[in-house]
Design a protein around this nucleic acid. Structure first.
Lengths: 195, 195
DNA sequence: TAGATTGTTAATCGATTAACAATC
DNA sequence: TAGATTGTTAATCGATTAACAATC
């Protein structure tokens, strides 16, 4: 989140920002901001604040987004196709190599610049090419099983959009985006706004 | 998250679950589960655990997902179209009425069962039909401005996919899905796994 | 030098865990 | 009745806030 605000400020040609101002922007306390900056190696200067461009680059290294990441997308539904063409990621050095699906009627068809491959070909593909991240945009029923296969072929990072919590060995990194829960939370907030 | 696990257990025809077993499934402590159940009106029975079906219905009411929600989607990009046809929500009583976009080359074209409408027609549409939730799948540069217009036409809930934090009056409910941050977090986890 | 602002320590607050009597 | 399991209270832990000396 800090990274997002720093990029925005940078695009507005601001050079320094104080913890007070940044807190105001992000809806936090100044104390919180200083505590956080300090935690990831604060580079602030008394009197003037934090140097925006320097801090942004620092966060980029800290997050590892200064490095290239190769991804494959498994599940060529609407969401999978949307992610394959979502530009912001590509600019940020996340690039999609291939899209896989198990539906025979989809295999071989093209989606933008991609030709959908069969999930049967996953192992063969992963033995040839290095893949950092598997994006799972497939039904809950298949997610765990496919994740295990991909893990066994050496992939250690999973961006999961299926409404399940993947169970994989400790050395796997998993981030799940639970769209269903997100919408349910909105429903809850609506219901409990003031009255 | 509890709701998701309860549905799953229900589909497996389990009737009761103890805090210990549920904690194991969800990766929490039994204490945590009991504390949470108690917080949203615990209905457990000593000796046997929590009645799954009853608890699921209870959470449905608590979250407000037993009620119908009318949505509009603003931004007919890949993500907007994906969400318009994402089935799980429709089953859960979230239904999409219309999709809007400001790109003249998209307006009038059809995406599945929807004909894309101009954002110029937003106010007219909102004065005719009641809309509970506006889904924002548009560029960061337009999100705040469109959100304000939609707010001024009476919509009070926003499901935001643009990489900005919307600034709206207190009585608005906002849930943002920051896909960029989510992927950056995965990058961070990968980098910091064990060594 | 004076004003602004950090970095850090101490104080507060809330959330998680542990423990156990109550009870199905 | 005996075993299992809740609901809740107390203890622990971590995260947020407040305060202020150091310093640009």
């Amino acid at each position: 989140m800090y990274y997002r605000y720093l990029k925005q400020l940078e695009s507005e040609h601001v050079h320094f920002i104080s913890s007070t101002k940044l807190a105001e922007l992000a809806g936090l306390t100044a104390s919180q901001v200083r505590q956080d900056m300090s935690a990831f190696g604060g580079e602030g200067r008394q009197g003037s604040g934090y140097p925006i461009s320097e801090l942004r680059k620092h966060l980029e290294r800290l997050l590892g987004i200064d490095k290239q990441h190769a991804m494959i997308i498994i599940g060529a539904g609407n969401l999978g196709c949307a992610l394959a063409h979502y530009h912001p990621f590509h600019q940020k050095r996340f690039s999609t190599l291939e899209i896989f699906d198990n539906d025979p009627s989809k295999i071989g068809t093209t989606i933008g610049s991609f030709t959908i491959k069969s999930t049967d070909a996953l192992e063969a593909f992963l033995s040839q090419r290095h893949v950092d991240i598997a994006v799972l945009t497939l039904p809950a029923t298949h997610a765990q099983q496919i994740a295990e296969r991909v893990y066994n072929s050496g992939v250690r990072a999973f961006w999961n959009f299926a409404p399940v919590d993947l169970k994989l060995p400790q050395d796997a990194s998993i981030v799940s985006v639970h769209l269903d829960e997100s919408l349910e939370m909105l429903s809850y907030y609506m219901l409990n706004k003031d009255g």
